[in-house]
Design a protein around this nucleic acid. Structure first.
Lengths: 274, 274
DNA sequence: ACAGGATTCTGAACGCGTTCGAAATCCTGC
DNA sequence: GCAGGATTTCGAACGCGTTCAGAATCCTGT
Protein backbone atom coordinates (compact mmCIF):
# COMPACT_ATOMS: atom_id res chain seq x y z
CA UNK A 1 0.00 0.00 0.00
CA UNK A 2 1.07 3.57 0.52
CA UNK A 3 3.96 3.46 -1.91
CA UNK A 4 3.26 6.38 -4.14
CA UNK A 5 5.84 8.97 -4.93
CA UNK A 6 9.31 7.62 -4.65
CA UNK A 7 9.55 5.24 -1.74
CA UNK A 8 11.03 6.97 1.17
CA UNK A 9 12.55 4.89 3.92
CA UNK A 10 10.32 5.98 6.68
CA UNK A 11 10.66 3.18 9.17
CA UNK A 12 11.02 4.15 12.76
CA UNK A 13 9.82 7.69 12.96
CA UNK A 14 12.47 8.84 15.37
CA UNK A 15 10.20 9.18 18.38
CA UNK A 16 12.24 11.37 20.67
CA UNK A 17 9.33 11.44 23.06
CA UNK A 18 8.84 8.47 25.37
CA UNK A 19 11.11 5.80 26.71
CA UNK A 20 13.70 5.74 24.00
CA UNK A 21 15.83 2.88 25.18
CA UNK A 22 13.54 0.30 26.65
CA UNK A 23 16.36 -2.20 26.94
CA UNK A 24 15.42 -5.84 27.15
CA UNK A 25 13.02 -6.57 29.96
CA UNK A 26 9.76 -5.26 28.64
CA UNK A 27 8.19 -4.76 31.98
CA UNK A 28 7.00 -1.29 32.79
CA UNK A 29 3.32 -0.67 32.38
CA UNK A 30 2.58 1.33 29.29
CA UNK A 31 1.05 4.67 30.15
CA UNK A 32 -2.00 5.97 28.42
CA UNK A 33 -1.42 6.83 24.83
CA UNK A 34 -0.50 10.42 25.68
CA UNK A 35 -0.04 11.44 22.08
CA UNK A 36 3.50 11.29 20.89
CA UNK A 37 5.14 8.03 21.86
CA UNK A 38 6.22 6.56 18.58
CA UNK A 39 3.18 8.05 17.01
CA UNK A 40 4.63 9.03 13.70
CA UNK A 41 4.23 12.74 13.77
CA UNK A 42 7.32 14.69 13.12
CA UNK A 43 8.50 16.86 15.98
CA UNK A 44 7.31 16.29 19.49
CA UNK A 45 4.58 18.72 20.42
CA UNK A 46 6.00 22.00 21.54
CA UNK A 47 2.93 24.00 22.34
CA UNK A 48 -0.59 23.33 23.48
CA UNK A 49 -1.95 24.64 20.25
CA UNK A 50 0.15 22.19 18.32
CA UNK A 51 -1.12 19.39 20.51
CA UNK A 52 -4.67 20.52 19.89
CA UNK A 53 -4.23 20.60 16.14
CA UNK A 54 -2.78 17.14 16.19
CA UNK A 55 -5.69 15.84 18.22
CA UNK A 56 -8.16 17.59 15.95
CA UNK A 57 -6.70 15.93 12.88
CA UNK A 58 -6.65 12.52 14.50
CA UNK A 59 -10.22 12.81 15.73
CA UNK A 60 -11.43 13.98 12.37
CA UNK A 61 -9.66 11.12 10.67
CA UNK A 62 -11.08 8.60 13.10
CA UNK A 63 -14.56 9.91 12.56
CA UNK A 64 -14.25 9.81 8.79
CA UNK A 65 -12.71 6.34 8.86
CA UNK A 66 -15.75 5.10 10.72
CA UNK A 67 -18.15 6.93 8.47
CA UNK A 68 -16.63 6.10 5.11
CA UNK A 69 -13.99 3.46 5.66
CA UNK A 70 -10.26 3.85 5.41
CA UNK A 71 -9.68 3.84 1.68
CA UNK A 72 -12.59 6.08 0.88
CA UNK A 73 -11.36 8.67 3.31
CA UNK A 74 -8.85 10.85 1.52
CA UNK A 75 -6.17 12.92 3.16
CA UNK A 76 -7.67 15.93 1.44
CA UNK A 77 -11.02 15.20 3.03
CA UNK A 78 -9.49 14.78 6.46
CA UNK A 79 -7.60 18.02 6.11
CA UNK A 80 -10.49 20.07 4.82
CA UNK A 81 -12.91 18.60 7.33
CA UNK A 82 -10.47 19.48 10.09
CA UNK A 83 -10.02 22.92 8.63
CA UNK A 84 -6.33 22.60 7.90
CA UNK A 85 -4.25 22.05 4.80
CA UNK A 86 -3.02 18.70 3.59
CA UNK A 87 0.47 19.88 4.35
CA UNK A 88 -0.48 20.37 7.95
CA UNK A 89 -1.93 16.92 8.22
CA UNK A 90 1.35 15.56 6.94
CA UNK A 91 3.25 17.74 9.36
CA UNK A 92 1.68 15.80 12.20
CA UNK A 93 1.25 12.39 10.60
CA UNK A 94 3.92 11.57 8.13
CA UNK A 95 1.68 9.14 6.30
CA UNK A 96 -1.95 8.16 6.22
CA UNK A 97 -0.90 4.90 7.77
CA UNK A 98 0.14 6.63 10.95
CA UNK A 99 -3.38 7.78 11.52
CA UNK A 100 -4.34 4.16 11.93
CA UNK A 101 -1.98 3.85 14.78
CA UNK A 102 -3.61 6.57 16.81
CA UNK A 103 -6.84 4.75 16.29
CA UNK A 104 -5.48 1.36 17.14
CA UNK A 105 -3.61 2.50 20.23
CA UNK A 106 -6.70 4.05 21.65
CA UNK A 107 -8.78 0.97 20.97
CA UNK A 108 -6.25 -1.27 22.65
CA UNK A 109 -6.22 0.90 25.69
CA UNK A 110 -9.99 0.85 25.93
CA UNK A 111 -9.90 -2.88 25.55
CA UNK A 112 -7.46 -3.44 28.39
CA UNK A 113 -9.51 -1.30 30.74
CA UNK A 114 -12.75 -3.00 29.79
CA UNK A 115 -11.30 -6.48 30.04
CA UNK A 116 -9.78 -5.91 33.45
CA UNK A 117 -13.05 -4.61 34.79
CA UNK A 118 -15.04 -7.45 33.34
CA UNK A 119 -12.84 -10.26 34.59
CA UNK A 120 -12.30 -8.92 38.08
CA UNK A 121 -15.00 -11.14 39.54
CA UNK A 122 -13.45 -14.49 38.69
CA UNK A 123 -10.21 -16.29 39.30
CA UNK A 124 -10.88 -19.09 36.85
CA UNK A 125 -8.20 -18.90 34.19
CA UNK A 126 -10.25 -20.12 31.25
CA UNK A 127 -13.02 -17.72 32.11
CA UNK A 128 -10.66 -14.78 32.50
CA UNK A 129 -9.04 -15.58 29.20
CA UNK A 130 -12.35 -15.83 27.47
CA UNK A 131 -13.52 -12.56 28.94
CA UNK A 132 -10.32 -10.83 27.89
CA UNK A 133 -10.64 -11.96 24.32
CA UNK A 134 -14.38 -11.46 24.21
CA UNK A 135 -13.83 -7.95 25.43
CA UNK A 136 -11.47 -7.35 22.53
CA UNK A 137 -14.12 -8.44 20.08
CA UNK A 138 -16.66 -6.13 21.65
CA UNK A 139 -14.29 -3.19 21.69
CA UNK A 140 -13.24 -3.74 18.12
CA UNK A 141 -16.74 -4.40 16.81
CA UNK A 142 -17.47 -0.87 15.56
CA UNK A 143 -14.34 -0.97 13.44
CA UNK A 144 -14.79 -4.39 11.95
CA UNK A 145 -15.62 -3.06 8.54
CA UNK A 146 -12.29 -1.43 7.97
CA UNK A 147 -10.28 -3.72 10.18
CA UNK A 148 -8.64 -5.14 7.11
CA UNK A 149 -6.44 -2.11 7.06
CA UNK A 150 -5.23 -2.77 10.57
CA UNK A 151 -4.32 -6.23 9.63
CA UNK A 152 -2.53 -5.36 6.46
CA UNK A 153 -0.44 -2.94 8.41
CA UNK A 154 0.29 -5.49 11.11
CA UNK A 155 1.43 -7.98 8.52
CA UNK A 156 3.85 -5.59 6.89
CA UNK A 157 7.37 -6.06 8.19
CA UNK A 158 8.53 -2.89 6.51
CA UNK A 159 6.09 -0.83 8.49
CA UNK A 160 7.15 0.43 11.86
CA UNK A 161 3.52 0.19 12.84
CA UNK A 162 3.47 -3.56 12.94
CA UNK A 163 3.00 -4.83 16.47
CA UNK A 164 5.04 -7.85 15.39
CA UNK A 165 8.10 -5.90 14.49
CA UNK A 166 7.95 -3.04 16.92
CA UNK A 167 8.47 -3.93 20.53
CA UNK A 168 7.57 -0.52 21.79
CA UNK A 169 4.29 -0.54 19.98
CA UNK A 170 1.93 0.68 22.70
CA UNK A 171 -0.81 -1.64 21.55
CA UNK A 172 1.36 -4.68 21.95
CA UNK A 173 2.76 -3.65 25.30
CA UNK A 174 -0.68 -2.89 26.65
CA UNK A 175 -2.09 -6.18 25.45
CA UNK A 176 0.75 -8.31 26.78
CA UNK A 177 0.37 -6.53 30.08
CA UNK A 178 -3.30 -7.43 30.07
CA UNK A 179 -2.60 -11.10 29.53
CA UNK A 180 -0.08 -11.04 32.33
CA UNK A 181 -2.95 -9.83 34.45
CA UNK A 182 -5.26 -12.53 33.12
CA UNK A 183 -2.78 -15.14 34.27
CA UNK A 184 -1.63 -13.57 37.52
CA UNK A 185 -5.15 -12.96 38.70
CA UNK A 186 -6.11 -16.58 38.16
CA UNK A 187 -5.79 -19.60 40.38
CA UNK A 188 -3.56 -21.14 37.75
CA UNK A 189 -0.56 -18.85 38.12
CA UNK A 190 0.72 -20.14 41.46
CA UNK A 191 0.59 -23.69 40.18
CA UNK A 192 2.90 -23.03 37.26
CA UNK A 193 6.62 -22.58 37.39
CA UNK A 194 7.91 -19.04 37.20
CA UNK A 195 9.51 -19.45 33.82
CA UNK A 196 6.27 -20.46 32.20
CA UNK A 197 4.43 -17.61 33.87
CA UNK A 198 6.98 -15.30 32.35
CA UNK A 199 6.48 -16.73 28.86
CA UNK A 200 2.74 -17.13 28.75
CA UNK A 201 1.61 -13.52 28.43
CA UNK A 202 3.38 -13.17 25.12
CA UNK A 203 2.06 -16.49 23.95
CA UNK A 204 -1.46 -15.50 24.92
CA UNK A 205 -1.01 -12.29 23.01
CA UNK A 206 -0.14 -14.38 19.99
CA UNK A 207 -3.30 -16.34 20.65
CA UNK A 208 -5.20 -13.08 20.49
CA UNK A 209 -3.52 -12.25 17.20
CA UNK A 210 -4.79 -15.55 15.82
CA UNK A 211 -8.28 -14.69 16.98
CA UNK A 212 -7.91 -11.28 15.37
CA UNK A 213 -6.97 -12.93 12.11
CA UNK A 214 -10.04 -15.11 12.38
CA UNK A 215 -12.16 -12.09 13.24
CA UNK A 216 -10.91 -10.04 10.33
CA UNK A 217 -12.02 -12.73 7.93
CA UNK A 218 -15.27 -13.39 9.74
CA UNK A 219 -18.30 -12.09 7.88
CA UNK A 220 -21.04 -13.51 10.08
CA UNK A 221 -23.38 -11.00 11.71
CA UNK A 222 -21.82 -9.56 14.85
CA UNK A 223 -18.87 -11.87 14.12
CA UNK A 224 -20.79 -14.52 15.96
CA UNK A 225 -18.61 -17.21 14.55
CA UNK A 226 -15.48 -15.74 16.06
CA UNK A 227 -17.22 -15.46 19.40
CA UNK A 228 -18.18 -19.10 19.28
CA UNK A 229 -14.65 -19.96 18.25
CA UNK A 230 -13.33 -18.19 21.32
CA UNK A 231 -15.88 -19.83 23.59
CA UNK A 232 -14.70 -23.20 22.44
CA UNK A 233 -10.99 -22.60 22.08
CA UNK A 234 -10.18 -20.87 25.37
CA UNK A 235 -11.10 -23.88 27.53
CA UNK A 236 -8.82 -25.95 25.33
CA UNK A 237 -5.96 -23.55 25.84
CA UNK A 238 -6.54 -23.59 29.57
CA UNK A 239 -6.62 -27.37 29.62
CA UNK A 240 -3.45 -27.55 27.60
CA UNK A 241 -1.61 -25.28 29.99
CA UNK A 242 -2.95 -27.27 32.88
CA UNK A 243 -1.78 -30.54 31.39
CA UNK A 244 1.69 -29.12 30.95
CA UNK A 245 2.24 -29.62 34.65
CA UNK A 246 2.17 -33.40 34.43
CA UNK A 247 5.35 -35.41 34.34
CA UNK A 248 4.62 -37.10 31.05
CA UNK A 249 4.93 -33.87 29.15
CA UNK A 250 7.99 -32.54 30.81
CA UNK A 251 10.27 -33.15 27.83
CA UNK A 252 7.79 -31.77 25.35
CA UNK A 253 7.03 -28.75 27.48
CA UNK A 254 10.70 -28.13 28.06
CA UNK A 255 11.41 -28.15 24.34
CA UNK A 256 8.44 -26.03 23.54
CA UNK A 257 9.48 -23.53 26.17
CA UNK A 258 12.97 -23.40 24.72
CA UNK A 259 11.56 -22.89 21.28
CA UNK A 260 9.35 -20.05 22.36
CA UNK A 261 12.12 -18.47 24.36
CA UNK A 262 14.69 -18.69 21.61
CA UNK A 263 12.62 -17.97 18.56
CA UNK A 264 9.29 -16.47 19.30
CA UNK A 265 9.90 -13.89 21.98
CA UNK A 266 13.10 -12.35 20.66
CA UNK A 267 11.65 -11.98 17.23
CA UNK A 268 8.42 -10.42 18.24
CA UNK A 269 9.20 -6.81 18.71
CA UNK A 270 12.87 -7.05 18.20
CA UNK A 271 12.48 -7.66 14.49
CA UNK A 272 14.73 -10.56 13.76
CA UNK A 273 17.60 -8.37 12.67
CA UNK A 274 21.13 -9.71 12.26
CA UNK B 1 -2.78 -0.67 -0.60
CA UNK B 2 -4.00 -0.26 -4.17
CA UNK B 3 -6.93 1.97 -3.44
CA UNK B 4 -6.40 4.86 -5.74
CA UNK B 5 -9.04 6.13 -8.00
CA UNK B 6 -12.48 5.47 -6.65
CA UNK B 7 -12.62 2.08 -5.03
CA UNK B 8 -14.05 -0.40 -7.33
CA UNK B 9 -15.48 -3.56 -5.90
CA UNK B 10 -13.27 -5.97 -7.67
CA UNK B 11 -13.45 -9.03 -5.47
CA UNK B 12 -13.80 -12.31 -7.24
CA UNK B 13 -12.71 -11.70 -10.78
CA UNK B 14 -15.42 -13.78 -12.33
CA UNK B 15 -13.19 -16.58 -13.53
CA UNK B 16 -15.23 -18.22 -16.18
CA UNK B 17 -12.34 -20.48 -16.94
CA UNK B 18 -11.69 -23.41 -14.62
CA UNK B 19 -13.84 -25.42 -12.25
CA UNK B 20 -16.41 -22.85 -11.36
CA UNK B 21 -18.40 -24.78 -8.82
CA UNK B 22 -15.96 -26.82 -6.79
CA UNK B 23 -18.64 -27.75 -4.30
CA UNK B 24 -17.48 -28.81 -0.87
CA UNK B 25 -14.95 -31.59 -0.92
CA UNK B 26 -11.76 -29.88 -2.01
CA UNK B 27 -10.12 -32.94 -3.36
CA UNK B 28 -9.09 -32.84 -6.96
CA UNK B 29 -5.41 -32.30 -7.58
CA UNK B 30 -4.71 -28.84 -8.87
CA UNK B 31 -3.27 -28.86 -12.34
CA UNK B 32 -0.35 -26.74 -13.33
CA UNK B 33 -1.06 -23.05 -13.24
CA UNK B 34 -2.15 -23.02 -16.86
CA UNK B 35 -2.74 -19.30 -17.00
CA UNK B 36 -6.26 -18.28 -16.44
CA UNK B 37 -7.79 -20.11 -13.52
CA UNK B 38 -8.88 -17.32 -11.21
CA UNK B 39 -5.99 -15.35 -12.48
CA UNK B 40 -7.51 -11.93 -12.51
CA UNK B 41 -7.30 -11.08 -16.15
CA UNK B 42 -10.46 -10.08 -17.80
CA UNK B 43 -11.66 -12.36 -20.54
CA UNK B 44 -10.33 -15.86 -20.89
CA UNK B 45 -7.66 -16.04 -23.56
CA UNK B 46 -9.20 -16.32 -26.98
CA UNK B 47 -6.18 -16.51 -29.21
CA UNK B 48 -2.62 -17.69 -28.92
CA UNK B 49 -1.35 -14.21 -29.47
CA UNK B 50 -3.42 -12.99 -26.59
CA UNK B 51 -2.01 -15.73 -24.41
CA UNK B 52 1.50 -14.76 -25.47
CA UNK B 53 0.97 -11.10 -24.63
CA UNK B 54 -0.35 -12.04 -21.26
CA UNK B 55 2.66 -14.20 -20.58
CA UNK B 56 5.01 -11.50 -21.78
CA UNK B 57 3.53 -8.96 -19.40
CA UNK B 58 3.66 -11.36 -16.49
CA UNK B 59 7.24 -12.36 -17.17
CA UNK B 60 8.32 -8.77 -17.53
CA UNK B 61 6.62 -7.88 -14.29
CA UNK B 62 8.21 -10.79 -12.49
CA UNK B 63 11.63 -9.81 -13.73
CA UNK B 64 11.21 -6.19 -12.71
CA UNK B 65 9.80 -7.16 -9.33
CA UNK B 66 12.94 -9.13 -8.67
CA UNK B 67 15.20 -6.41 -9.98
CA UNK B 68 13.62 -3.42 -8.30
CA UNK B 69 11.12 -4.69 -5.79
CA UNK B 70 7.37 -4.50 -5.98
CA UNK B 71 6.68 -0.91 -5.06
CA UNK B 72 9.46 0.52 -7.14
CA UNK B 73 8.19 -1.27 -10.20
CA UNK B 74 5.55 0.90 -11.80
CA UNK B 75 2.84 -0.30 -14.10
CA UNK B 76 4.16 2.15 -16.65
CA UNK B 77 7.60 0.56 -16.43
CA UNK B 78 6.19 -2.94 -16.82
CA UNK B 79 4.16 -1.86 -19.82
CA UNK B 80 6.93 -0.02 -21.58
CA UNK B 81 9.47 -2.73 -20.83
CA UNK B 82 7.09 -5.28 -22.27
CA UNK B 83 6.47 -3.05 -25.25
CA UNK B 84 2.76 -2.57 -24.63
CA UNK B 85 0.63 0.24 -23.29
CA UNK B 86 -0.54 0.56 -19.71
CA UNK B 87 -4.03 0.00 -20.94
CA UNK B 88 -3.01 -3.35 -22.33
CA UNK B 89 -1.40 -4.39 -19.09
CA UNK B 90 -4.67 -3.61 -17.36
CA UNK B 91 -6.57 -5.48 -19.98
CA UNK B 92 -4.86 -8.66 -18.84
CA UNK B 93 -4.33 -7.91 -15.17
CA UNK B 94 -7.04 -5.82 -13.70
CA UNK B 95 -4.75 -4.56 -10.97
CA UNK B 96 -1.10 -4.58 -10.10
CA UNK B 97 -1.95 -6.93 -7.27
CA UNK B 98 -2.96 -9.62 -9.70
CA UNK B 99 0.52 -9.77 -11.07
CA UNK B 100 1.64 -11.01 -7.70
CA UNK B 101 -0.63 -13.95 -8.01
CA UNK B 102 0.96 -15.21 -11.18
CA UNK B 103 4.24 -14.99 -9.40
CA UNK B 104 3.05 -16.68 -6.26
CA UNK B 105 1.24 -19.48 -8.04
CA UNK B 106 4.30 -20.38 -10.00
CA UNK B 107 6.48 -20.36 -6.91
CA UNK B 108 4.09 -22.62 -5.07
CA UNK B 109 4.07 -25.07 -7.89
CA UNK B 110 7.85 -25.17 -8.05
CA UNK B 111 7.91 -25.69 -4.33
CA UNK B 112 5.59 -28.66 -4.39
CA UNK B 113 7.62 -30.36 -7.08
CA UNK B 114 10.92 -29.71 -5.34
CA UNK B 115 9.64 -30.85 -1.97
CA UNK B 116 8.19 -34.07 -3.28
CA UNK B 117 11.45 -34.93 -4.98
CA UNK B 118 13.51 -34.13 -1.93
CA UNK B 119 11.47 -36.09 0.56
CA UNK B 120 11.01 -39.18 -1.55
CA UNK B 121 13.83 -41.00 0.17
CA UNK B 122 12.43 -41.04 3.68
CA UNK B 123 9.30 -42.20 5.41
CA UNK B 124 10.01 -40.46 8.69
CA UNK B 125 7.25 -37.94 9.22
CA UNK B 126 9.26 -35.31 11.04
CA UNK B 127 11.93 -35.41 8.40
CA UNK B 128 9.46 -35.22 5.55
CA UNK B 129 7.75 -32.28 7.16
CA UNK B 130 11.02 -30.51 7.70
CA UNK B 131 12.09 -31.11 4.13
CA UNK B 132 8.80 -29.83 2.81
CA UNK B 133 9.02 -26.62 4.76
CA UNK B 134 12.74 -26.21 4.16
CA UNK B 135 12.06 -26.58 0.48
CA UNK B 136 9.60 -23.73 0.69
CA UNK B 137 12.20 -21.49 2.24
CA UNK B 138 14.70 -22.35 -0.48
CA UNK B 139 12.20 -21.80 -3.24
CA UNK B 140 11.06 -18.50 -1.83
CA UNK B 141 14.54 -17.25 -1.00
CA UNK B 142 15.08 -15.17 -4.14
CA UNK B 143 11.90 -13.28 -3.43
CA UNK B 144 12.43 -12.63 0.24
CA UNK B 145 13.07 -8.97 -0.26
CA UNK B 146 9.68 -8.17 -1.58
CA UNK B 147 7.83 -10.96 0.14
CA UNK B 148 6.18 -8.39 2.33
CA UNK B 149 3.86 -7.69 -0.53
CA UNK B 150 2.76 -11.29 -0.71
CA UNK B 151 2.01 -11.28 2.90
CA UNK B 152 0.09 -8.06 2.92
CA UNK B 153 -2.06 -9.44 0.17
CA UNK B 154 -2.58 -12.70 1.99
CA UNK B 155 -3.70 -10.86 5.08
CA UNK B 156 -6.26 -8.80 3.28
CA UNK B 157 -9.72 -10.32 3.51
CA UNK B 158 -11.07 -7.96 0.89
CA UNK B 159 -8.65 -9.28 -1.68
CA UNK B 160 -9.66 -12.27 -3.68
CA UNK B 161 -6.00 -13.17 -3.78
CA UNK B 162 -5.78 -14.15 -0.15
CA UNK B 163 -5.18 -17.87 0.22
CA UNK B 164 -7.11 -17.63 3.46
CA UNK B 165 -10.26 -16.40 1.88
CA UNK B 166 -10.19 -18.08 -1.48
CA UNK B 167 -10.57 -21.81 -1.44
CA UNK B 168 -9.78 -22.21 -5.08
CA UNK B 169 -6.55 -20.33 -4.76
CA UNK B 170 -4.17 -22.59 -6.67
CA UNK B 171 -1.36 -21.89 -4.25
CA UNK B 172 -3.38 -23.10 -1.34
CA UNK B 173 -4.71 -26.17 -3.08
CA UNK B 174 -1.26 -27.16 -4.25
CA UNK B 175 0.26 -26.71 -0.82
CA UNK B 176 -2.45 -28.63 1.02
CA UNK B 177 -2.04 -31.39 -1.50
CA UNK B 178 1.69 -31.44 -0.76
CA UNK B 179 1.12 -31.82 2.95
CA UNK B 180 -1.29 -34.62 2.32
CA UNK B 181 1.59 -36.28 0.55
CA UNK B 182 3.98 -35.53 3.40
CA UNK B 183 1.67 -37.37 5.73
CA UNK B 184 0.55 -40.19 3.48
CA UNK B 185 4.08 -41.05 2.49
CA UNK B 186 5.18 -41.35 6.11
CA UNK B 187 5.06 -44.25 8.53
CA UNK B 188 2.82 -42.13 10.70
CA UNK B 189 -0.24 -42.08 8.49
CA UNK B 190 -1.35 -45.67 9.01
CA UNK B 191 -1.13 -45.27 12.75
CA UNK B 192 -3.56 -42.39 12.88
CA UNK B 193 -7.29 -42.56 12.55
CA UNK B 194 -8.73 -41.61 9.21
CA UNK B 195 -10.45 -38.51 10.48
CA UNK B 196 -7.21 -37.02 11.71
CA UNK B 197 -5.43 -37.87 8.49
CA UNK B 198 -8.15 -35.97 6.71
CA UNK B 199 -7.70 -32.90 8.91
CA UNK B 200 -3.96 -32.70 9.18
CA UNK B 201 -3.00 -31.51 5.72
CA UNK B 202 -4.90 -28.29 6.22
CA UNK B 203 -3.45 -27.87 9.68
CA UNK B 204 0.04 -28.43 8.37
CA UNK B 205 -0.62 -25.83 5.72
CA UNK B 206 -1.49 -23.43 8.49
CA UNK B 207 1.75 -24.41 10.13
CA UNK B 208 3.51 -23.40 6.93
CA UNK B 209 1.69 -20.08 6.98
CA UNK B 210 3.06 -19.47 10.46
CA UNK B 211 6.54 -20.24 9.23
CA UNK B 212 5.97 -17.87 6.34
CA UNK B 213 4.97 -15.16 8.75
CA UNK B 214 8.15 -15.78 10.69
CA UNK B 215 10.17 -15.82 7.49
CA UNK B 216 8.74 -12.56 6.25
CA UNK B 217 9.89 -10.81 9.39
CA UNK B 218 13.23 -12.58 9.47
CA UNK B 219 16.12 -10.33 8.54
CA UNK B 220 19.01 -12.68 9.31
CA UNK B 221 21.29 -13.58 6.39
CA UNK B 222 19.77 -16.35 4.31
CA UNK B 223 16.89 -16.31 6.82
CA UNK B 224 19.01 -18.65 8.89
CA UNK B 225 16.90 -18.01 11.92
CA UNK B 226 13.77 -19.25 10.22
CA UNK B 227 15.59 -22.37 9.10
CA UNK B 228 16.72 -23.07 12.63
CA UNK B 229 13.19 -22.43 13.82
CA UNK B 230 11.91 -25.05 11.41
CA UNK B 231 14.61 -27.53 12.39
CA UNK B 232 13.53 -27.27 15.97
CA UNK B 233 9.79 -26.94 15.59
CA UNK B 234 9.01 -29.74 13.17
CA UNK B 235 10.13 -32.52 15.54
CA UNK B 236 7.88 -30.98 18.14
CA UNK B 237 4.93 -31.03 15.81
CA UNK B 238 5.66 -34.64 14.95
CA UNK B 239 5.89 -35.58 18.59
CA UNK B 240 2.66 -33.79 19.35
CA UNK B 241 0.82 -35.66 16.65
CA UNK B 242 2.35 -38.88 17.84
CA UNK B 243 1.26 -38.26 21.40
CA UNK B 244 -2.27 -37.66 20.27
CA UNK B 245 -2.68 -41.40 19.89
CA UNK B 246 -2.45 -42.09 23.59
CA UNK B 247 -5.51 -42.61 25.67
CA UNK B 248 -4.83 -39.78 28.09
CA UNK B 249 -5.34 -37.22 25.41
CA UNK B 250 -8.41 -38.63 23.84
CA UNK B 251 -10.75 -36.00 25.23
CA UNK B 252 -8.43 -33.15 24.39
CA UNK B 253 -7.74 -34.47 20.92
CA UNK B 254 -11.41 -35.03 20.36
CA UNK B 255 -12.25 -31.45 21.26
CA UNK B 256 -9.41 -30.05 19.27
CA UNK B 257 -10.48 -32.05 16.26
CA UNK B 258 -13.99 -30.77 16.61
CA UNK B 259 -12.75 -27.25 16.87
CA UNK B 260 -10.65 -27.54 13.78
CA UNK B 261 -13.42 -29.22 11.88
CA UNK B 262 -16.06 -26.71 12.84
CA UNK B 263 -14.13 -23.49 12.80
CA UNK B 264 -10.86 -23.70 11.04
CA UNK B 265 -11.47 -25.73 7.93
CA UNK B 266 -14.78 -24.26 6.89
CA UNK B 267 -13.49 -20.77 7.28
CA UNK B 268 -10.30 -21.21 5.38
CA UNK B 269 -11.30 -20.85 1.83
CA UNK B 270 -14.96 -20.51 2.35
CA UNK B 271 -14.63 -17.02 3.80
CA UNK B 272 -16.68 -17.17 6.92
CA UNK B 273 -19.75 -15.80 5.22
CA UNK B 274 -23.20 -15.99 6.78
C1' DA C 1 9.66 46.50 21.13
C1' DC C 2 12.18 43.85 17.96
C1' DA C 3 15.50 40.86 15.33
C1' DG C 4 15.98 36.24 14.24
C1' DG C 5 15.45 31.54 14.80
C1' DA C 6 12.24 27.65 15.44
C1' DT C 7 7.78 25.97 14.68
C1' DT C 8 3.61 25.54 12.19
C1' DC C 9 1.06 25.96 8.08
C1' DT C 10 0.15 26.27 3.10
C1' DG C 11 -1.13 24.61 -1.60
C1' DA C 12 0.81 23.73 -6.04
C1' DA C 13 3.09 19.99 -8.10
C1' DC C 14 4.82 15.13 -8.68
C1' DG C 15 4.47 10.28 -9.63
C1' DC C 16 1.62 6.68 -9.07
C1' DG C 17 -2.41 3.10 -9.91
C1' DT C 18 -6.29 3.01 -12.41
C1' DT C 19 -10.17 4.16 -15.86
C1' DC C 20 -12.29 4.83 -20.19
C1' DG C 21 -13.69 6.07 -24.74
C1' DA C 22 -12.14 5.27 -28.88
C1' DA C 23 -8.99 3.35 -32.32
C1' DA C 24 -6.80 -0.70 -34.28
C1' DT C 25 -6.87 -5.40 -35.19
C1' DC C 26 -8.70 -9.90 -35.52
C1' DC C 27 -12.18 -13.07 -36.65
C1' DT C 28 -16.18 -14.80 -38.58
C1' DG C 29 -20.20 -15.79 -42.16
C1' DC C 30 -21.34 -14.66 -46.59
C1' DG D 1 -13.07 -9.87 -50.45
C1' DC D 2 -15.95 -7.61 -47.19
C1' DA D 3 -19.35 -5.88 -43.65
C1' DG D 4 -19.80 -6.07 -38.84
C1' DG D 5 -19.06 -7.72 -34.45
C1' DA D 6 -15.73 -9.16 -30.91
C1' DT D 7 -11.22 -8.74 -29.11
C1' DT D 8 -7.19 -6.21 -28.19
C1' DT D 9 -4.50 -1.94 -27.85
C1' DC D 10 -3.89 2.62 -26.88
C1' DG D 11 -2.82 6.87 -24.11
C1' DA D 12 -4.84 10.94 -22.14
C1' DA D 13 -7.01 11.93 -17.94
C1' DC D 14 -8.57 11.28 -13.03
C1' DG D 15 -8.03 11.04 -8.13
C1' DC D 16 -5.04 9.72 -4.88
C1' DG D 17 -0.91 9.89 -1.31
C1' DT D 18 2.93 12.47 -0.72
C1' DT D 19 6.61 16.24 -1.10
C1' DC D 20 8.62 20.67 -0.83
C1' DA D 21 9.88 25.41 -0.96
C1' DG D 22 8.36 29.00 0.99
C1' DA D 23 4.99 31.92 3.87
C1' DA D 24 2.98 32.78 8.30
C1' DT D 25 3.21 32.53 13.08
C1' DC D 26 5.14 31.83 17.49
C1' DC D 27 8.70 32.18 20.74
C1' DT D 28 12.69 33.67 22.77
C1' DG D 29 16.71 36.93 24.45
C1' DT D 30 17.89 41.52 24.64
Amino acid sequence: MSGNGQQRTRQHPVGTGGAKDAGDSAEQAPGLPTSGELAGGRAQPKTDKSEATRALILETAMRLFQERGYEKTTMRAIASEAGVSVGSAYYYFSAKEFLIQGFYDQMTYEHAADAKARMAHTRDFAERLQIAIGSWIDTAAPYHEFSAQFFRTAADPTSSLSPFSNESHPARATAVELFRDVLQGSELAPKLDAELVELLPDVLWLHLMVVVLYWVFDRTPDTERTREFVRRSTPLVARLINLSRYRVFRPLVRDAKGLIQDFVLPSIGKTIVK
